[in-house]
Design a protein around this nucleic acid. Sequence first.
DNA 1: TATGAATGAGATTTCATTCAT
DNA 2: TATGAATGAAATCTCATTCAT
Lengths: 223, 223, 223, 223
Amino acid sequence: MVRKSNSRLQSAAATPRARRRDRQRDAILHAAAQLFRERGFTDTGMRDIAAAADLSAANLYHYFDGKHDLLFYCQDRALDRMLDAVATARRAAASAPERLRSVLVAHVRTLLDDIEGATAHLQIESLPPALRTAIVRKRDRYERALRRLIADGVRSGELIDMDPALVARAMLGAMNWTVTWFRPEGADTAAAVGDVISRYLVRGVAMRTPATKRQLSVVRRPS
Amino acid sequence: MVRKSNSRLQSAAATPRARRRDRQRDAILHAAAQLFRERGFTDTGMRDIAAAADLSAANLYHYFDGKHDLLFYCQDRALDRMLDAVATARRAAASAPERLRSVLVAHVRTLLDDIEGATAHLQIESLPPALRTAIVRKRDRYERALRRLIADGVRSGELIDMDPALVARAMLGAMNWTVTWFRPEGADTAAAVGDVISRYLVRGVAMRTPATKRQLSVVRRPS
Amino acid sequence: MVRKSNSRLQSAAATPRARRRDRQRDAILHAAAQLFRERGFTDTGMRDIAAAADLSAANLYHYFDGKHDLLFYCQDRALDRMLDAVATARRAAASAPERLRSVLVAHVRTLLDDIEGATAHLQIESLPPALRTAIVRKRDRYERALRRLIADGVRSGELIDMDPALVARAMLGAMNWTVTWFRPEGADTAAAVGDVISRYLVRGVAMRTPATKRQLSVVRRPS
Amino acid sequence: MVRKSNSRLQSAAATPRARRRDRQRDAILHAAAQLFRERGFTDTGMRDIAAAADLSAANLYHYFDGKHDLLFYCQDRALDRMLDAVATARRAAASAPERLRSVLVAHVRTLLDDIEGATAHLQIESLPPALRTAIVRKRDRYERALRRLIADGVRSGELIDMDPALVARAMLGAMNWTVTWFRPEGADTAAAVGDVISRYLVRGVAMRTPATKRQLSVVRRPS
DNA sequence: TATGAATGAGATTTCATTCAT
DNA sequence: TATGAATGAAATCTCATTCAT
């Protein structure tokens, strides 16, 4: 579903040399994202990241320009996945609630999958202005898309009339908050959390019809 | 509505000296909470707080044991207000959705009112173990109360059958997230945000009946 | 034996007002000396001293000019007692070893008696130049007297020919070191320690004659 | 005589990198010990040590865990040398007074040699509990050995019957005190001081026989 | 006399980053 | 590519001392 994400990072990788470099960059980003999520940006040291990625702190600077750069790419990568989800949802011929749900599910999974420890939407204020505007622009693009999805549903009568901006933010908050309490080793899987929470969040704006209700309960067990 | 909160801090204040001290402590906590919320705990310096509260950095230590102590009291105070709201809601003879809503409204207002710049639920991991357990205990008490409010509604048939723990967390996330985007000088008031977001969040679990719907629109303008 | 010590401090104390002031000064010095001895000058805070003397830190400055002043008086008082002992010893018609011993005994007791928690010879380098020279002068006067006592004994043939300066310093070191390990609640009394250590230290330079030997064992149990 | 001391610090030093590192560590310890001895632990700043060792204050933390760690290694190294001296003395077939003297001479030289500015026995109370117990244990081992040396002499009739514990402490005090007055640029060499002071200290407990007397004057030769 | 409030200077330590190898 | 060594800036916190009451 999510294909060429972080394309800026993983170039075609012609030479083995380049491939190795890309693998290292991925490992570093993975370690950084996990630590950023767990302890926060400021409380994560370059040495911590280096240790987690199994190289020296000085060597990190051969792969990234610095700590801010790491945060930037973590967020950038996550936002790319989320935007992909939006594009996919929009192409799918489905009802507004269904489209909305698929986006929300993708959002939660991007955040929680341990493969991609992402930190989108989080810690943006820790970025220096130059990088921040780039991320903010992309984030805003994502939020606008989400808002538009809601607004479209309202217009089509599939969703009730509530301020799309505020509803979108409430959805984002509920989802981003999951990184605070979700534990991979816990009882719930990331997929289950995404499934239930997205159902709840959509239900808050979905126009109630017997049909819709049933529909929702059917979708229950995804992948 | 919320009266006896932070009683540990604001004693009767018999002497003028003690009164002045309490005023200073409040001013400091206020400044600290605002900065913690804006920049995060680690990125807020004692100097910043001192400057905002208009005294020297060293003098902060005359009123509080340290930076952690400041964070502790910010959170403690906010949680007290929220627990008050829960107690009030429970006493009120009303429907489950109504009780739930009044708690959510109080939660948002506690977070956003500029009078009381609070940081409940946020940055708990920045506390040292001793203080953390105290806050975590109180926070868990609050979350349990919220979950029970939901579970009770499910049992009484007023709310649909969804995992109360997860729904509670989704609500908390949506509300806590408001501190990242809400600006007092913006178009919406804190009260308006609390009103709309709580309606949305309750609707996600409310059993749909024409009565309920009307009820909700009526409650509209809270204090 | 030691009479008008610290005469500079305890004036005739005519008025009750003055008497009370003197009592306070004594209490403060006592507390300070004990703490200085236990933790060292730099690691003892004015607040610690204030707490031990049961008054506020600010109030200390009504009785003494500052921390250095406290240290100065502690040392000054102790040196006065020791100089008294030297004078007494010199007046006493006795053998050189006996005179030496009485000085050493007085030295140890001045250091260990809990009534007078003294810190002579210790921490002199912590004093600012102005106060330091005064103390150093007095201390040197004391050390010179001790050296002279030894040199006289050498000249009279009662002590063996060893560098009096070095022997004096060895004696001082052995005695001053007692404050490091002596515990009032321990098995040995301050008097016993002074008795035995002074015997040992004198024996190291005493010319051995059967008479001398017996003499020493007789002096055994002083007050 | 003392060879394998501080083996934990100076490993075989295979690589040139490691060798350089060891040299730096030694330089730092040397500077620290000298300053600790001169001004005391608390009154010596990391900046002072850094300046004396000719590197930045921050870089000290590359070589040692902190100020306490520096003090710990200073003391540990000195105690190792002293314990070495005890072992050597015990192996040597010699009279009790001779064995005792060789230990005392080694002790003084360990303290005074400017090559190894040591601070054993001093400032132990400035260490945090964890490090303190380690040092205290080693120090106690050394003191016990010294006491045993004395007690053995008493039992064999070579030394007079005096409390070995108190005599040992007196010896330690006299020797440790040397660091307060000894100046390398002064008239006496460290060797001369060690020679004379040890003779004095042994004489205080030595059973007097003509033979012993002559023996003692013969041992003279310190390097 | 007595004290809470206040502060400037300075302490140790951390950290992102650069440099030499 | 890789890393130990090195550093300047900044962080929290302590403390002797002064001031207003």
